[in-house]
Amino acid sequence: HDTTVHINGLRIEVHGASEEILKWIEEAARRGVEAEEIKRWVEEALK
C-alpha cells in the first residue's frame, strides 16, 4: 500500500508497506514511540 500515517501530528509517507507494517506503526504510536523514531524504522524496513 501507499499510505500516509499520521502520528502525533507528524505525517509519515509509507510506500509499499504491508498491513503488518501499518499495524506495527499504529501499535508503536499507541505505546508513545517518538514519531521520528518510527519513521526511521519504517524507512529501514522498506529498504
Rank of each mutant, 00 (worst) to 15 (best):
R11M: 14
E44N: 12
G16H: 07
G9Q: 03
K23M: 11
R11T: 14
K47E: 07
K47I: 07
T4R: 04
W41N: 01
E19V: 13
L10F: 07
E27I: 06
H6D: 10
E20C: 09
V14N: 01
V5R: 04
L46E: 02
V42G: 00
S18W: 06
H15E: 11
K39I: 12
H15P: 11
G9V: 02
W24P: 00
E43I: 14
V14L: 13
V5W: 02
N8W: 01
R30S: 12
A29N: 07
L10D: 05
E20M: 13
V5F: 05
I7G: 03
T3E: 12
I38T: 00
H15Q: 13
E43C: 13
N8R: 03
I7V: 09
G16R: 05
E13N: 14
E36G: 08
G32P: 01
L22C: 05
W41K: 04
R11L: 13
E19N: 10
G16E: 06
E37W: 13
A45K: 09
G9I: 02
A35M: 08
I38M: 04
V33L: 12
E36L: 13
I38F: 04
E43P: 00
V5I: 15
L46V: 06
L46T: 06
H1E: 11
E27A: 10
W41C: 05
G32T: 01
E34C: 07
V42Y: 03
E36S: 11
H15L: 14
E44C: 13
L46D: 01
G16L: 07
R31F: 12
H1Q: 12
R11Y: 11
K23L: 11
K47V: 09
L10I: 14
V42C: 02
L10A: 05
I38R: 00
R11H: 13
I7M: 04
G32Q: 03
V42L: 08
E27W: 13
W41Q: 04
R31S: 10
I7N: 02
R11Q: 12
K39F: 11
T3G: 14
E20A: 13
R40M: 07
E20P: 04
T4A: 14
G16D: 06
E19P: 15
E13H: 09
V42P: 00
E27V: 05
G9Y: 01
V33A: 05
R31N: 12
W24V: 02
H6S: 12
E36P: 05
E44V: 10
T4N: 08
A45H: 10
E36F: 13
S18F: 06
L10Q: 07
W41Y: 13
H1R: 09
V33Q: 04
E26F: 15
W24Q: 02
N8V: 05
A35T: 06
E19R: 11
R31E: 06
V14C: 04
L46H: 02
E27T: 06
I21Q: 03
E27M: 12
L22E: 01
L10K: 03
E43D: 10
K23Q: 09
V14R: 01
E34I: 09
R31I: 08
E37Y: 14
E13A: 06
T3M: 12
A17T: 04
E26M: 15
V33K: 03
E19H: 12
E34F: 09
E13V: 11
A29G: 05
I7F: 06
H15T: 14
E36W: 15
E27D: 14
N8I: 05
S18V: 06
H1P: 13
G9N: 05
I21D: 01
G16S: 06
E36D: 10
R31W: 13
K39C: 06
A28E: 02
R40D: 02
H15A: 14
I12T: 01
H1F: 12
I38S: 00
A17R: 03
E20Y: 15
A45D: 01
L22K: 04
D2T: 15
E36V: 09
E19Q: 13
H6R: 08
H6L: 12
K47L: 10
A29T: 10
A28N: 02
V33C: 06
V42E: 00
